[in-house]
Amino acid sequence: MSDLKATITEQMKDAMRAKDKARLGTIRLILAELKRIEVDERIELDDARVLTVLDKMVKQRRDSITQYEAAERPELAEKEQQELEVIKTFLPQPLSDAEITQIIDDAIAESGASSMQDMGKVMAIVKPQVQGRADMGKISGLVKQKL
């Protein structure tokens, strides 16, 4: 079992002991998604893949919050926001703007990218370094600016 998955499981037990229903529900959602992927693909997830799943769940929550706020459903947006905060606790420390810029600059130099056609090469280098630590949409926009 990956270290991150073990941590999530331990947090579930802590939430049960504390009778924190909201946190427990979100952690169970995370573990259910991880288990679904393991069963579907017949693999054991490593930390990198768990981070990818958590990143996807964060993105889904942000999209839902935007849609609920547009539909004037603040109670549903609040529930999604609470889930988002719980999921974020399992992600590594977010990168600062300076760190993100440095990673992108290094990737451009390493790949020898000179135009938008080289964006895939740059993103392939950048993505593993920032996975779970920065919004990939923001990263993509910054790479486009630099190229």
Rank of each mutant, 00 (worst) to 15 (best):
E10D: 10
V143K: 02
L34H: 08
T9C: 07
M12I: 12
M57P: 00
L24K: 11
R36V: 07
T52P: 00
T9R: 06
M116H: 05
R42W: 08
K59H: 10
K121C: 01
K13Q: 15
I103L: 06
M12P: 05
D40M: 08
A15L: 08
D47P: 11
A6H: 09
Q117G: 14
Q60I: 15
E83Y: 12
D118H: 15
D14W: 04
D46P: 12
L76P: 07
V39E: 11
A98F: 12
Q11T: 12
A77P: 02
P92I: 11
K13A: 15
T26P: 00
D40K: 13
A113T: 14
I43R: 15
G112L: 07
M12F: 13
S140T: 12
Q81E: 09
I104E: 02
R23E: 09
M12T: 09
A71R: 08
I87F: 04
D47S: 12
L29I: 10
D47G: 12
D20R: 09
E72P: 03
D20K: 11
L4V: 06
A70S: 01
M123L: 06
I30W: 03
D46C: 15
I108G: 04
A22V: 14
E78H: 04
Q117L: 13
D14V: 13
R23M: 03
M1W: 05
D3P: 09
I125M: 02
L51G: 03
A6K: 14
V122E: 01
R23I: 08
L54P: 14
A71E: 10
R133Q: 02
D118I: 10
M119E: 02
T9P: 02
A77G: 12
V86K: 06
D135T: 13
V130N: 01
G112N: 09
D105V: 15
E78D: 11
E83S: 09
T89M: 12
A109L: 04
A134I: 04
L54Q: 08
E33M: 14
A109M: 01
M116P: 00
L29N: 03
Q131G: 02
V58S: 00
I37Q: 14
V53D: 09
R61M: 13
Q129M: 15
I65R: 10
L31Q: 07
E99Y: 05
I104L: 05
K19Y: 07
L84M: 04
R42L: 10
K127P: 00
D47Q: 07
Q60H: 11
E38H: 12
P92R: 03
K56Y: 06
Q67M: 00
I37C: 05
P74L: 06
T7S: 15
